[in-house]
Design a protein around this nucleic acid. Structure first.
Lengths: 338, 338
DNA sequence: CTGAAAGCGCTTACAG
DNA sequence: CTGAAAGCGCTTACAG
């Protein structure tokens, strides 16, 4: 492998100068422009590749971060894949390696984190389902000098910068779109409360009255375990509304599976979509184009969230102040709400 | 940060001894068992974390590999996510960092690979859609001392070990299952030829005649571009068979979207599934449990493929001989073929 | 059996 | 303005 000292030898200059030139860190050093170009050219000609591990050691950096994901949303939604795509893009740009870990409970997180702490990474991104019981662990990790960025629906601690999607906006954007399309009675399958607030705000903004009859909500009192986003919940919710004789000309659900269920049920009953009922789901899952009738959906833009998280972490590692960030949802209109 | 020399100082022993003990590399060195335990205990007490970057530099390793993925299959299939899960699990076990890159053509691969070569990684895993036009690049990379493992449907070069799913077995397993369930006339939507061969082999094995009428095939002469796996292809294929008056009591498709299309069409026409027609898809996509009728499917076990690829790459980096490996598909039976 | 010393490939404060 | 030298945190061949 060709290294800096080979370039220095070839041109009979000092190793230091080569390093400075190649890193654009001349500092107080000055060199003839002609020599600078010669060094650059020789590096290229010899096929020099900087050894980032060595540079990292010198800087006390690993040029790597740990990525801990408790998979977000439904397996079918592709959210995790989008997120990882955003992460890897930004990481590549910044010459950062990753250590990717999937976990599902605090125990698993700790098992995996222990092997990584400090010895391998400069920082941590913890994403997906929020684990408030891990706050103490995360603060400890940060105290050890490893900055942490979270990507959770809720910020775990004021001192842990978080990337979050604007949940209220999700409800608002979807509902506003349905109103613009002419819907006057919009049903809603409620899981996350902020989205419900956005739904109500859009109704008010559109001059429509809020009718609690139109909202189907989970009955159980236990903690939400993710099952509310499933196809079955959508089936139950829409079935319930129909049974109760509630009339509606629009539906905004909190997942695409829920929306797919609504779509299937109504379609089977001969309801024309979008003419009689317009439907908007949530997550912009990869299959939205392939349902019986292509499904409109609000994207949480997890790709953007991943990109942001990496940039925030890098700033933290560089010792900069970092604020939490909020990402705006994007609406994708397909036939179900045209 | 506590490091080896701190442990050495604390116990008044040599740095070398600490390193040897902590790495279980005593070699010709012998030490009192009692001292060995004391060193271990002190390391733990002080919270020592080995700096893997420094160790790597010494060994001429980066403890990292590049992962290049041209996303496999349909976005909705979750194959990529499964694959990454397998990769990250094995990598974590082996203290390996990753540099994850998504690419879609040779140009993109080259752009990203150039930044990574040798300066950041010890090896490469290239997965997903096969790119024969990159063989030269991959061989060059390997000549530079960076081992390469591919995860492609076809082995690109005899000297590049590949992980592959047994495509023939996919067709065989699905068809054999349908035969066992009592199907006698099994329709097939053909894309990959090996799966078709497996289909035929299972028919013969089950004592059924092969009837070309039952097979729907893409008409176009251009290269397969992935669109054959889409919902629309399934719609067209099953529609065509029905139009031609072909009778069947089973269907094996080469994707889950194709199968979902078959399911929807037949269901809408009042065909009872699985009583009248049994259906098996391919990929075991996350939504298989949520179709109108839960869909049986053959999994390509990409998780296992990811795990294997990492282990093979590590062996190559360690200078061992490595052979290509074949993974067997797994059948998941749901209501559509019960 | 034990540990001092060299070195992995870089970077940069500092002496000339 | 220029470059020799020290050092990042490890590992190991080798001298004692």
């Amino acid at each position: 492998m060709v290294q800096m000292k080979d370039i220095a030898k070839a041109l009979n200059v000092s190793l230091s100068l080569v390093s400075k030139v190649l890193n654009d860190r001349m500092g107080t050093t000055a060199a003839r422009p002609e020599l600078v170009t010669r060094i650059r050219k020789t590096a290229k000609k010899l096929g020099y590749r900087k050894n980032y591990s060595a540079a990292g050691l010198r800087h006390g950096r690993h040029s790597a971060f740990g990525l801990f994901i408790h998979k977000l949303g439904l397996a079918s939604s592709g959210l995790t894949e989008n997120f990882i795509t955003g992460i890897s893009g930004a990481a590549g740009e910044m010459h950062q390696k990753q250590i990717l870990n999937f976990f599902e409970d605090a125990e698993q997180f700790r098992d995996q984190a222990v092997n990584i702490n400090r010895g391998m990474v400069d920082g941590l991104i913890v994403a997906g389902v929020a684990h408030p019981e891990l706050v103490k662990d995360l603060l400890e990790i940060r105290e050890m000098g490893i900055p942490v960025v979270t990507v959770n629906q809720e910020q775990l601690h004021e001192s842990l910068p978080n990337v979050v999607i604007d949940q209220v906006a999700i409800g608002f954007v979807a509902t506003e779109h349905l109103i613009r399309q002419g819907c006057r009675r919009i049903a809603h399958l409620k899981v996350i409360n902020e989205r419900f607030e956005g739904y109500k705000a859009a109704l008010e903004n559109g001059g429509l009255d809020y009718d609690p009859q139109l909202v189907y909500e989970r009955q159980s009192s236990g903690p939400e375990d993710g099952t509310s986003y499933l196809y079955q919940f959508g089936e139950k919710g829409i079935g319930d509304l129909i049974e109760r004789g509630v009339e509606f000309d629009g539906i905004f659900t909190q997942s695409d599976e829920q929306a797919m269920a609504a779509l299937n049920i109504l379609h089977f009953r001969g309801v024309r979509i979008p003419q009689q009922v317009r439907i908007v789901g949530c997550d912009n899952s990869p299959y939205c184009g392939f349902t019986v009738i292509p499904l409109s959906s609000v994207s949480q833009d997890y790709r953007e969230q991943g990109d942001l998280a990496v940039r925030m972490l890098m700033d933290l590692i560089d010792g900069k102040k970092v604020e939490s960030a909020t990402v705006r949802p994007k609406l994708f209109v397909r036939k179900s709400s045209e």
